[in-house]
Amino acid sequence: MTRVLILGGSGRIGSNVAADIVAHTQAQITVTGRNPIGAHGVASLPTLVSEKLGSQVQFQVLDLADREVLRDAIAACDLVIHCAGPFHYRDAQVLKTCIEVGVNYLDVSDHPSFTRKALDFRDEAAAAGVTAIINTGIFPGISNSMVRQGVEQLDETERIHLSYLVSGSGGAGITVMRTTFLGLQSPFKAWINGQWQIIKPYSARETIEFPAPYGRIGVYWFDMPEAFTLPDTFPVKTVITKFGTVPDFYNYLTWSVAHWWPSSWLNNPKVIEFLARVSHRMTDVSDRFTGIGVAIRSEVNGYKDDQPASYCSTLVHENTAVAAGYGTGTLAELLLAGKLKKPGVWPVEQALSTDLFEQTMQSRGIKIHHEWLKK
């Protein structure tokens, strides 16, 4: 019997990862949290987990700061999935421990600082025979594999443009809100025209045509790990990563925070927490009207048969958190079945073949639309 440990598994993203693994494997799953009491104190988390996910899943109280308990929990399983964000604040101790005890690893990390920390362990993971895949989920995650699909259609790739759109909260918890505002703290580097350039977060609004039901929506520069893993993976001159929300009103609020608020405020944890909680309350209301879906648009530009060509892929799902669960759950399924083995530390696009990606998306009913764009 294979065993999976999901750190932070009682949260919105982690519980959807667990649900996907339950649906597609026979693994015994342990989800963890720091507190056994439910968010509103109405029921214990062990009870809520059992009611939602069934007997295949159990709950364990675990604080990542308790290194000894963490190590014992990791050593008792076959796969660890790290869902305990925000990853801005995390070190790579979980990954390091997995390497030391020889356990495969996935995470839903979404911040470049953590990605760089994880990639530093590539050689150690390879030597230990541990497959570690980072930045899984919906974006980054499924989005990276959509890019790989596009790149493989071209003979030569010059430019990658990724646009992400989330309705309201996306069905995720307050941690995702914290992540959004933490992403506004500092300028970041983007790969543009063959060189690294400094970009201000939530700048350069661009109107993108997303599939129904969204249509034309504004997106903005946002600091994402794929902004530097994609140039490392593919020989491209430009990688653009932009993000927006529905309703558009939230975009303007976020833009004003990024451009008008003093940096000292944005670097204050109390201010970030305030913004996250206010935003979460707002989306509790707006979610009723906008839904909690996600849309991804990947456009890859280059050459095919010596002619300029553009390949566009789009995906829409009604629930962002569920889609994130699919992105990570598919990789867990493949690792547990022995269909994916690549010792080292890898972003998704460097570890997952397009064939396997397409098979697992089809098994979950995820439809990705592809088209060649006319010049």
Rank of each mutant, 00 (worst) to 15 (best):
L106R: 08
P112C: 10
L70S: 01
V57A: 04
S55H: 15
C77I: 04
D20S: 09
A23F: 02
V22F: 02
G14I: 03
V108I: 05
T47W: 07
V49A: 14
A84C: 12
S44K: 13
G85E: 12
A84W: 00
S44A: 11
L45H: 06
K52N: 13
G85L: 12
G85A: 12
L48S: 13
R34V: 05
F121S: 04
A43G: 11
R67G: 10
L70H: 00
P46F: 00
R122A: 15
K117I: 05
H111M: 13
I81P: 12
T115S: 13
S50Q: 13
Q26K: 15
A76K: 04
K96T: 12
V57L: 03
A75N: 08
R71Q: 10
Q28S: 15
R34D: 07
A75D: 06
A75Q: 10
V57W: 01
A76R: 06
E51A: 12
E124L: 13
C83I: 05
S15F: 00
K117C: 10
V61R: 13
S55V: 12
S10K: 07
D63C: 08
A43P: 06
D123K: 11
P36T: 06
S44I: 01
T25D: 01
R122I: 09
F59N: 05
L95Q: 04
